[in-house]
């Protein structure tokens, strides 16, 4: 059985991953829709910027976050002074790091599913009196729901495993920013703590499997909703 400490680590990891997905999902949906449906100057640039965390070393992303959102960074100072939000060395910072790292995966999956929605359905809905927003909410989004679920799951799984950007940005503080991968890493650095490392690793495998099963289940529900009684 997992110990109280281990459960706390798992709980923190879940909190970080869930918050990162919940906060980044609306932005990901908006950007995915814009990339799928709009053409504008600089679209390639936006596309590249979204994909950047996928190709950069995570440590570089973490360092960039530290520079921007640190207590004395340009964005970090504004957040702290105006809203009282501090991200550096807090679990919320870990959530931001996880969100940034998972963002490209999320956007890709959602964008693909928007692109597979027949544009003519949206045009038909417009002729029936739907405003742009109402057509998006009633046609485009429901038809792309499967991709949204997949994207959220991918980002969630990526967030659970996030290491490089997190440790660089918010360090490795037990109880605050020490998520599952960081805890495993810490144990491997301590002589004689292999059993704990193994135990936590098994927990990580179980969590990842659960996420995978969950995403399959969501996808099946979405498929079911779309073509219920086919045949």
């Amino acid at each position: 059985m997992p110990t109280a400490d281990e459960l706390a680590i798992v709980g923190l990891s879940l909190r970080v991953a869930v918050v990162s997905v919940a906060c980044s999902l609306p932005f990901a949906v908006a950007i995915a829709w814009v990339l799928a449906r709009r053409s504008f100057p600089g679209k390639t640039l936006v596309d590249a910027a979204v994909h950047l965390p996928l190709v950069l070393p995570p440590v570089v992303v973490g360092y960039a976050l530290l520079v921007l959102f640190g207590r004395h960074g340009p964005l970090g100072r504004v957040l702290a002074d105006w809203f009282g939000i501090v991200l550096a060395f807090r679990w919320t910072g870990a959530a931001l790091a996880a969100a940034i790292m998972g963002f490209p995966l999320m956007v890709r999956a959602i964008r693909l599913s928007f692109e597979s929605v027949d544009r003519r359905l949206e045009v038909a809905a417009r002729t029936l009196g739907g405003s742009r927003l109402s057509v998006f909410m009633s046609i485009s989004l429901p038809l792309a729901l499967r991709g949204v679920a997949t994207g959220a799951m991918l980002s969630f799984a990526r967030g659970l495993g996030e290491f490089g950007a997190t440790i660089t940005f918010v360090s490795n503080i037990p109880g605050e920013t020490q998520t599952l991968p960081l805890a495993i890493y810490t144990y491997t650095q301590v002589p004689g703590a292999e059993p704990q490392a193994l135990h936590l690793s098994l927990l990580a495998v179980a969590l990842s499997l659960a996420a995978l099963v969950g995403s399959e289940w969501l996808a099946r529900i979405a498929r079911h909703r779309r073509d219920d009684d086919r045949g």
Binding site: R120, V123, A124, R126, T127, L128, G129
Partner: peptide
Amino acid sequence: IDRRRVGYVF
């Protein structure tokens, strides 16, 4: 489009 009240059968 949405204000034209034109029924379109494609």
